[in-house]
Structure formats: C-alpha cells, structure tokens
C-alpha cells in the first residue's frame, strides 16, 4: 500500500464541484427530508465558490442532482435575467455541462430564489428553493436549540399568538413573504421568502420541492401531493397579494404576480414577475407559435 492508494487521481474539479462525500451526505439528508415533510434536517453544508447567503444551499442541492442531461433553469425574483440568476446558471453549467433553459416547461430542475413559476410544474420536475432562514419560529424564538424543541413538541402556540396580535393591531395578518405553513399536518415550515401568491402552489403539487439554507445548514422538503396549509384562523381567510387584476405594461400578461415599478409622475406601472412567462406572452403577440403550460392561477384566481 502506498500513499497514492489512499487518495484519488488529482482532478482540477470534481464533477458538479462537490466531492463524492459531500454529495452522499446531501443525498442522505434529502431522503430524510422527503420522509418527514417540512422538518428541517441539519447538514454540514460545504463551502462552495459562491458567498453564503447567495444561494449556496440551493446550489449544493443542484450540484448533487445534476447530470449532463439535466435541463436547468435558474430564476431570482422570478427573473431568469437577473445578475445572480445568470451567475448561478453559468456556474451550474460550468461544473456539470448541464444544458440550461429559460422555459419552465422544458426544465428538469429549477433553482429559484423567492418565486415559484406561474406555469404548473409536472411530476418529474424538481424545484429547489434557496432559503435564507429555514426557521419559521425565528421571529418568536431566535435560539435554534429552543426552536428545535418547540418543533419536537409541535409547540406552535407562540406562532398563532403572533398572528393573532397582528390581526388585533393592524386588522390583518402582516406577514408578507415567507408565510409560515403547516406541512402534512405536523411541521410548521417556512416556504422560503416566496410571496403569499406562491404558497398555495406547494399544496398537493405534483412536483418535488427541496428547500435548502446553505448558511444555516438546514434543508427541508415538500414531496408531491403533500398538504401545505398557511397558518390562518377559521374566520380570517388566507389572502394572497392583490395582483389578480393587474396587467403587465410590457407584455399585456394579466392575472399574475407583478413587480411594481414607480413612475416619475408618482404613479406605478406593473411588470410580470415571471420574466419568461412575459417573454412568451410578447412572442405570442408578435405572431410566434408559443407553448404555454397550464397555470396555477387562472384569470387572477387560484384554480381549485
């Protein structure tokens, strides 16, 4: 036996950047996350060539799942063309040779920050959501060990109390994005900072969602056909953002989540947040043959 036999042949970079042992750990934790929906699974979270907080959790999942045939789509705030999405897409292609796409319908794997595409995902697609803070209890309990005990005891009383206090003070639940949701009737999870508009898309969805926080070293999952219920009181229904009646000033798309663009005259214009859906709408307007997927929202209302 020699020293050489202890190691592998030198390569400038492993396939998919992560080495085999890092991938194995993530695989093991992903299986457990799928088995206990919404429960946060701690993992070692290796450093990757991107700064913490910039999608390193999602990146580690994508790097583990990728092979040279996986079609990858990357979005940030709904857009494929944002600088960070472009940077992550380029990195994933560079370390794996995986083909990239902008079209939700074509993608096998979608890594996203803060949005779920407007077109329904299929039962062979994986959505990887980047998570800054995996702990829904953080606002009521910043200490991770105590919060973990609260999850173990299904002790969510303070969560409810916080929502109740908001209704008392402001007349409504003030939670913007990251709306805490009960998964499979047992664990309260954060759906990541997606808008309230997107949370119902996770409920009994066909696709698999993996949520991964690289900096906080936790991952959780929502398997297909799993109940995801935003925490609400029976008499105060869940309300998504009032975007159902808005029209995109650039593409004419209507009834989807919008970005508000302040105008010089003091008014606001709106642009569709799912940039590729906007592009498709534009191309159709220009007479191109475009395939749209079925959408979760129809005429601005979540289809039942």
């Amino acid at each position: 036996m020699s020293l050489k036999s202890l190691t592998r042949d030198w390569e400038p970079m492993s396939y998919g950047f992560l080495d085999a042992s890092a991938k194995r750990e993530i695989r093991r934790k992903m299986l457990k996350a799928i088995a206990v929906p919404g429960c946060q699974m701690p993992y070692a979270s290796r450093e990757v060539p991107m700064a913490r907080g910039w999608g390193t959790g999602g990146l580690q999942i994508s790097c583990t799942l990728l092979n040279p045939k996986t079609k990858v789509k990357v979005i940030d705030q709904g857009a494929d063309d944002s600088v960070n999405a472009a940077s992550i897409r380029r990195f994933l292609a560079r370390v794996s040779g995986a083909p990239t796409t902008l079209d939700t319908l074509e993608a096998d794997l979608i890594q996203s920050r803060h949005r779920i595409p407007e077109e329904k995902l299929r039962d062979n697609q994986v959505l990887v959501l980047q998570v800054p803070n995996p702990e829904p209890l953080r606002p009521v309990q910043p200490n991770m060990s105590i919060a973990r005990q609260m999850h173990a005891d299904a002790d969510y009383g303070r969560m409810w109390l916080q929502l109740y206090e908001q209704i008392l003070r402001a007349g409504r639940v003030m939670q913007g994005a990251s709306y805490p949701s009960l998964v499979n009737g047992r664990f309260v999870m954060t759906p990541s900072p997606i808008p309230r508009w997107d949370v119902p898309k996770l409920h009994m969805a066909k696709h698999l969602t993996i949520l991964s926080a690289g900096r906080e070293k936790r991952l959780h999952a929502v398997p297909p056909f799993t109940r995801v219920e935003p925490l609400v009181f029976d008499d105060v229904p869940y309300r998504v953002e009032e975007h159902g009646a808005l029209t995109c000033t650039r593409s004419g798309a209507r009834g989807f989540f919008m970005n508000e663009i302040p105008q010089d005259d003091g008014s606001s214009a709106f642009e569709i947040s799912d940039s590729e859906y906007g592009v498709k709408t534009l191309r159709q307007r220009d007479g191109e043959a475009v395939t749209f997927g079925d959408t979760w929202y129809k005429h601005g209302e979540m289809a039942q």
Binding site: Y15, G16, R24, L66, P68, R94, S96
Partner: peptide
Amino acid sequence: MAHPLPSVPETRSN
C-alpha cells in the same frame, strides 16, 4: 467552456 466529466461511478450514483 470545458467542464468536468462525470466518472462511471458518479453517473451510476447520480
């Protein structure tokens, strides 16, 4: 751009 190629065990494990 040149990218790393998956080894046989990597492909199988994936």
